[in-house]
Amino acid sequence: MSIRQNGTERNHSMAMIEISNLSKEYRTSGQKLLAVNNISLALDKGDIFGFIGPNGAGKTTTIKMIATLLVPSSGSVFVDGLDVVKEPDKVRSILGYMPDSFGVYDDIKVWEYLDFFAAAYKISKDKRPAIIDDVLSLTDLSVKKNAYVESLSRGMKQRLCLAKTLVHDPKVMLLDEPASGLDPRARIEIRELLRELQRMGKTIMISSHILPEMEEFCNKIGIIEKGEMIVSGDVRTISRQVRGNQVIEITVLEELERAVSLLESMNEYVNDVKIMSRSHNENQNTHFSSSTGHSLQFGYIGEPNHEYVVLNSLVDSGLKIRAFHSPKADLEDVFMRVTKGLVN
């Protein structure tokens, strides 16, 4: 008897992670909870996928199903062409999983901790010291080799956990909230480490609810809300899809009207000019004051990375420009727009 319901056969595409129609339903004492609802996704080798969603959206459940910790209620997951339900052992050997609330053992030294996991992944005794040194230098923990694990700071523990995930050189890495609860410095260190892993050609899946970070190193993102994947795909495509085009905000000291008319005249670069003059110093000063400057927003539709053309022409025409920038939290904006209807 075939237990596969939706009849998906293993197809020989190059996808490292292939999820199709994945659902997970928790059934505890009569109550049903659909944690993940019909998610489909494909990641190629070298992709870094940012899995974004509010708490309880189903990120961890999905990652656990890929990590062979949970069996899907329906649908299928293939990692490097291997079915996670039918061949969990093979999948585990090519997969590195870092749980959201990771743990370390008490009374154990850093190198012993790594040695434990290396041995658990059946790496032979003579190869282990070299591998431990490698992952320690990669995660910048070489000086702490003989320290006790509980003496490490939280950021160091996080890096140690990443080092543990790397001992068996996995092809696919699943990192569940790797940067949660870290101070900015530790967060930057983790980010550097992830860049390094990206260069090593690993397929990485990162879940987070901290958006700006993801933007910098993910090439694909997916936004999940109440178990459903709302959007997924390339970062730029998604932001363009959602917003239409890139938004640039400028602040001029005076001559707001002239700036607006100038911008509207450059219609090969600019559309949708909006005056946002009251937006700046509202908190400090209820009356509009000309000294703080006027801000306005426009949509940039020209070639990517040629925004300076607009700036140059504005400066050339003698406008006193205080700021010219695109609003920072790009992904956050996407996120807020996309999940607007569902969050409330």
Binding site: K64, A67, T68, L69, D89, R92, S93, L95, Y97, P99, S101, F102, G103, V104, Y105, D106, F117, A120, Y121, K122, K164
Partner: peptide, 16 residues
């Protein structure tokens, strides 16, 4: 304790 220290899942995913 492994469950509480959150090492249980990591241990299960190794090949022990």
């Amino acid at each position: 304790l492994e469950k509480e220290q959150r090492t249980y899942e990591m241990m299960l995913l190794t090949r022990i």
